[in-house]
C-alpha cells in the first residue's frame, strides 16, 4: 500500500471517527460554547497559515513574486465577492501572465 493511500485512509477513518462523536454520545454531551468556538477558530487559523505559506514559500524559501501577486489578485476578487471559479482562475491566469512577462 503506498503512502498516498495510507494518508487518504488515515484521514478518512479519523474524520469518520470525529463525525461519530455526536451519534455515539446520543447528543447527551454538550460542548461548552468556548470549546466549540475554539474548534472553529482553529480551522480558520490552519487554513490561513496554509494559504500564507502556500502563497509565499516554496521548498523552505521565498516562492518568487508572481505567485503572491497572483494570490493577492485572487484575494481582491474574493473580497469583491466574485464567484469561486473566477477567484481561482483569476489567480492562476495572473501567475501565468506574470511569468510569461518574465516575472519569476
Amino acid at each position: 500500500m503506498n503512502a498516498t493511500v495510507a494518508m487518504i485512509l488515515t484521514l478518512a477513518v479519523g474524520t469518520y471517527a470525529l463525525r461519530l462523536v455526536g451519534p455515539a454520545l446520543h447528543g447527551r454531551v454538550e460542548l461548552p460554547a468556548r470549546v466549540r468556538e475554539l474548534l472553529s477558530a482553529g480551522a480558520v487559523v490552519l487554513l490561513v497559515a496554509l494559504l500564507a505559506t502556500g502563497a509565499l514559500t516554496e521548498g523552505g524559501g521565498f516562492a518568487g513574486w508572481a505567485r503572491p501577486a497572483a494570490v493577492l489578485v485572487g484575494a481582491v476578487l474574493a473580497w469583491r465577492r466574485a464567484p469561486f471559479p473566477v477567484v481561482v482562475l483569476g489567480a492562476a491566469v495572473t501567475a501565468g501572465v506574470l511569468r510569461s512577462a518574465g516575472v519569476a
Partner: peptide
C-alpha cells in the same frame, strides 16, 4: 501553484 492558495482565500 497560485490556484491552491487562492482556493483557500476564497
Amino acid at each position: 501553484d497560485a490556484a491552491f492558495p487562492a482556493v483557500l482565500v476564497a
